[in-house]
Amino acid sequence: MIRKLTEIDRKPLMALLIKEPALNLFLIGDVENFGFEQEFMELWGEFDPVDFHIKAVLLRFYKSYLPYAEGPFDVEGFAALLRKDKDVEMISGSSEIVKAFGRIMSFRKEKHLYFAELKEMNAEIYSGLSAPGTIKKATISEVNAICALTDGIQEFESSSEGSRKSLHQTLVSGTGRTYYVECQGEVVATASTAAENSMSAMVIAVATHQAYREQGLATRVVVQLCADLLAEGRSLCLFYDNPRAGAIYKRLGFQDIGAWSMMYF
């Protein structure tokens, strides 16, 4: 049985999600930060017919969907919800789960990434790269300056207006933070978190200005960002598809824990 979830389902839902807290970072963060009664967000759960515990969940966050299941689940039942949404743009999640939708639905494009987690920083890297006083924490006043950098990064897909709106909302809501390095009044390196929750956070938007690359600036920012989150008792997660970038993250202490897929309608 699949039905829409409400506040009364919080405890059994979290019991499911914390079984794999890293992979469920977005789900946990959205429930903790926004609850169940939001126009831009909905949650459905599939209940086990024997003991009625939640065995699978589907999140809608604006025009994107994210499924999670601890084992076999009603793919067709969740797919029916997606088909009813005329505005749906994508579905993402653990590759094993998302690929189940790919067998019964058509997509125009798909992207697959490595998923890595950091629980403990490489102490040698941290002591060698940290530079107290040179890395700043952004406020909403720095949104335009930071986005002026990220808008020029080809790998980033968000529009100029969309990136500013997203960063502003994240900083205001406290669901993420951004650190940056400035040179001659210009932001030249930055890294952010998103989906911060009580257990973890996602590292995103790591970028360096073209003229300042090969100096380790982005690595310094990521190191400081991760060190601060770890000191708060949270783990860090990130996606990557570039083996060179993956090697850098692994030097910091990140370890691959799975694969992540995004399927675009």
Score class of each variant (00 low, 15 high):
139 T>G: 13
139 T>H: 09
140 I>M: 00
140 I>A: 00
140 I>D: 05
146 I>C: 10
147 C>P: 00
149 L>N: 01
149 L>V: 06
149 L>D: 01
153 I>K: 04
153 I>A: 11
153 I>C: 10
154 Q>H: 13
155 E>C: 06
155 E>W: 09
157 E>L: 13
158 S>C: 11
161 E>L: 06
162 G>S: 14
162 G>Q: 13
163 S>Q: 10
163 S>E: 09
164 R>C: 02
165 K>T: 01
167 L>Q: 12
168 H>S: 14
170 T>A: 12
171 L>I: 06
172 V>N: 01
172 V>D: 09
175 T>F: 09
176 G>D: 09
176 G>Y: 03
177 R>E: 15
178 T>C: 12
178 T>D: 04
179 Y>K: 11
180 Y>G: 07
180 Y>M: 07
181 V>N: 08
184 Q>V: 10
184 Q>S: 15
186 E>G: 08
187 V>D: 03
188 V>Y: 02
191 A>F: 06
191 A>S: 14
192 S>T: 04
192 S>F: 00
192 S>R: 05
193 T>C: 04
194 A>C: 11
195 A>I: 00
195 A>E: 01
195 A>F: 05
200 S>Q: 05
200 S>D: 04
201 A>Q: 12
201 A>M: 09
203 V>I: 15
204 I>N: 07
204 I>G: 06
207 A>P: 04
207 A>D: 04
207 A>N: 00
207 A>T: 06
207 A>H: 07
208 T>F: 09
212 Y>H: 11
216 G>Q: 05
217 L>N: 04
218 A>W: 02
218 A>S: 11
218 A>T: 11
220 R>W: 08
222 V>A: 00
222 V>G: 08
225 L>C: 03
226 C>I: 01
227 A>F: 07
227 A>W: 02
228 D>M: 14
230 L>V: 13
231 A>Y: 01
232 E>I: 00
232 E>A: 14
234 R>L: 02
235 S>C: 10
235 S>D: 14
236 L>M: 15
236 L>T: 04
